[in-house]
Amino acid sequence: MILTLAAKELKSLFGSPLAWSVLAVLQALLAYVFLGQLDAYLSLQPRLTALANPPGVTEMVAVPLFGVAALVLLMATPLLSMRLIAGERRDRTLTFLFSAPLSLTEIVLGKFLGLLAFLAAVAALPALMALSLYAGGALDFGLVLANLLGLLLLAAAFAALGLFFSSLTASPTLAGISSLGAFLGLWVVNMAVTDPNSALHTLSLLKHFESFNRGLVDSADIAYFLVFAALFLAFTVRRLDNQRLGG
């Protein structure tokens, strides 16, 4: 049932010009960054070889690319998540799901997985570009995989929070802008903090993604993203249940 719903969401996404536009715009943007980094690497390469332990092409090109991809994901997710529940509420189609023999958890998970599958396609864009470097030299696969994993976990966190904001309102635009605000807020929450042990670092999405970006797969970071996503999915279920109770 969850997968049936997820497939439906994915189909609706790919059936709309929005999803394709998002993919096209992101690909253009990422390609620009990719080529820019590659260019910089090639011009620096003669000097790099003189160093004792020079940074490889993966570090110089792929890592910044994934960094940009994370930011791009932050911008794109609200556009895709905003209509998931708010749009159904506006079009009064939520009744269709509520009347079917489905639990609220199944509905929420179905929508979440549908969106996550799409975001995985978004995350595949930089990963494939990074892999294309393999054609011209050695590649640090561990670093690429760590980055991809980080990006996917980040996508899961964004999707869950976006879905939650979408469940709060009947206006997709409102859901979108609130999600964007929340994402950005969490992104920069540790910006002004000088104390390295501040709790705000623990809250910051960016901080946790940075470890993956450097190639560090830390179970604490993985747990952070998973708990984050699970928490907001649970909130979404609660919210829908309250709607049924409160009318």
Partner: peptide
């Protein structure tokens, strides 16, 4: 069937 038929326009 509710008052407003719950139909997904994009299917």
């Amino acid at each position: 069937l509710p008052e407003t038929p719950p139909l997904y326009r994009d299917l």
